[in-house]
Write a protein that binds this DNA or RNA. Structure first.
Lengths: 135, 135
DNA sequence: CTGAATCCTTGTTGATACTG
DNA sequence: CAGTATCAACAAGGATTCAG
């Protein structure tokens, strides 16, 4: 993990437990912000799906990134992975209660963005209109 | 911007406005998850601060990354940048109402992580205890 | 003091190919 | 079907240097 950060926070007088929380917060926030997590969680919100079903439903994701995303989600217990011992193999992914809860929290932020979408976009335009000419 | 994503979403039958929202959501989520944003917003929550004050208060951040973070935040209108025409220069950064609102939303997620911290950590341990031996 | 420019290291993403 | 391994491209992050 990012032990450097922990050391720095410790040096700054932050309690270890709190430091771990900060790392974890950033970790989860970063995960929510990565390219595929939100789409995966959203896709699974309607019910369990197989790997291929997810791959088809989420346009543009590579097998590799879908696999990584799913693995990370599974590791944190946000998603369950159920492999059925059959031929051909069948693996189903489903949201856990924790994952659903996480999805709700993210949805909260999504709603915020939707509400402030116009304002943010306008701010960017204004900023880009003023600043870019370096001189 | 990520026009590739937009094209893909369009191909998938997603409305352009919705596609923009998705990009923006991921953008803001990614920003929240980056290494310094949350710390900057938190630091500014107590009131305006100068560049150097922020640099001192946030242990471990480089001038470069602090500058980048501040610039991104300013661009979105989450933070104001007030340069006083003095010698030596003095620049103050402050949260806008929008920035404060954003901070509240992020705080919501932070609280979620704090509440589920133990569970997530336990899940990870269990996962790492079972899976790693590849064979 | 504030912060942009440069250079370098590292981590992330994705295409492709291969295995159980 | 459900992935993992490998490799190449790229972006993020950081140290240092330069400038207004």
């Amino acid at each position: 993990m990012d032990s450097t950060l922990r050391a720095r926070l410790a040096a700054a007088g932050v309690a270890p437990e709190c430091a771990t929380t900060i790392e974890l917060v950033r970790d989860l926030l970063a995960r929510a912000g990565d390219k595929w997590t939100v789409l995966v969680v959203t896709a699974l919100a309607d019910g369990p799906l197989r790997f291929t079903a997810l791959h088809e439903r989420i346009a543009g994701v590579s097998q590799r990134m879908l696999g990584h995303t799913l693995r990370a989600l599974t590791r944190d217990g946000l998603v369950t992975r159920t492999a059925h011992a059959e031929v051909p193999p069948r693996v189903e992914y489903a949201l856990t209660p924790l994952g659903r809860s996480f999805g709700d929290t993210v949805a909260h932020t999504v709603r915020w963005v939707q509400q402030h979408r116009t304002e943010i976009l306008r701010n960017r335009e204004r900023f880009d209109g003023e600043a870019p000419p370096t001189g």
